[in-house]
């Protein structure tokens, strides 16, 4: 059972899951860093991305790259719109106000999808060149697995460059340190927040397309649990911290996949419980996460 090939296979699997969690966690962390908002509608951006990707592949019959680009742009724009309608009017209100509206948005998307597209899961069939399997040194994987990891890493590099090198990226980092002071420096905070939401929702949409491609299904609740798990990843890495979200995403992916791979079947059914027990442990032992700054309101 524990052959090197099996372990390598699980390693690839974990890299896959980790890449997707990282993409989703980055979006959560970027928004949390600036607005202190735990965005419960984030996972539903994944769902929307997955549905759009499916529509592009089947109804429009466009090539695979379009099934990534179009959801990213459309859902990114939608993220900006949602911010404008549901979060901006509540800026300055108690922290839970935006959290409540994000719950409402999440419910709207889930039930809107149920009403218009039915709760029936829809199969996602990828183009043949992506599902083709490759055999390297006894380790078997699909081309899709490589695409997931490659694309996620490329997007993360692009985001890091954006945040480090561009004026807007620097403004974004400044905002997550102190919004009010940044505003005093003449930065248009509304623009920065809009960009943060566009990035957040866009990355979630890509993650949603990749997720539905990997598992071959999409339904109105596809993104809900991965969205929650991505929050766990963000907390592990230190919420508000972008490299932390990447690290947390991969750590969570490895922890979850190896938990399932190396425990007997009657235990591995508890995988989702394992992830949230992990959250409780992290909150107990190191609430600021691995890379997070100290931002805890100790009672």
């Amino acid at each position: 059972m524990l052959t090197p090939a099996y372990i390598a296979q699980q390693f690839i699997n974990a890299l896959n899951m980790g890449s997707i969690y990282a993409l989703v966690a980055i979006g959560l962390t970027v928004v949390y860093g600036i607005l202190r908002l735990i965005n419960f509608a984030h996972g539903d951006m994944m769902t929307l991305g997955a549905y759009l990707g499916l529509a592009v592949l089947t109804a429009l019959a466009l090539p695979a790259w379009a099934a990534l680009l179009i959801p990213m742009l459309v859902v990114g724009a939608l993220g900006v719109l949602i911010e404008r309608l549901a979060y901006r009017p509540l800026r300055g209100a108690p922290e839970v106000a935006m959290l409540i509206t994000s719950l409402a948005i999440s419910s709207l998307i889930q039930n809107g999808a149920t009403m218009t597209l039915t709760a029936q899961p829809r199969p996602v069939r990828l183009p043949a060149e992506l599902t083709q399997r490759v055999d390297v040194l006894g380790v078997n994987f699909a081309v899709m697995d490589v695409v997931i990891v490659g694309l996620a890493v490329a997007l993360m590099i692009a985001l890091t460059l954006f945040v480090q090198r561009t004026t807007l990226g620097i403004a974004m980092r400044a905002c997550s340190e102190n919004v009010r002071v940044t505003q005093l420096m003449g930065v248009d905070v509304n623009r920065v927040i809009a960009v943060a939401f566009a990035i957040s929702a866009g990355l979630a949409a890509v993650a949603g397309v990749l997720w539905s491609g990997k598992f071959g299904l999409v339904d109105p609740f596809t993104g809900f649990v991965p969205g929650l798990k991505a929050f766990v990843a963000a907390v592990i890495g230190g919420i508000g911290n972008i490299p932390g979200a990447m690290l947390g995403g991969y750590l969570l992916g490895f922890a979850e996949v190896f938990f399932v791979a190396f425990t007997p079947p009657e235990v591995s059914g508890y995988r989702d419980a394992f992830v949230f027990v992990l959250l409780l442990v992290v909150l107990l032992v190191r609430p600021t996460g691995l890379l997070g700054a100290r931002e805890v309101n100790r009672a």
Binding site: F40, V96, L99, V235, F276, L283, P287, V296, N297
Partner: peptide, 15 residues
């Protein structure tokens, strides 16, 4: 969980 800011409780309880 309650040693942290109030809204951590939201995610932890959902977990």
């Amino acid at each position: 969980v309650l040693r942290l800011r109030g809204h951590y409780l939201a995610v932890a309880t959902l977990g």
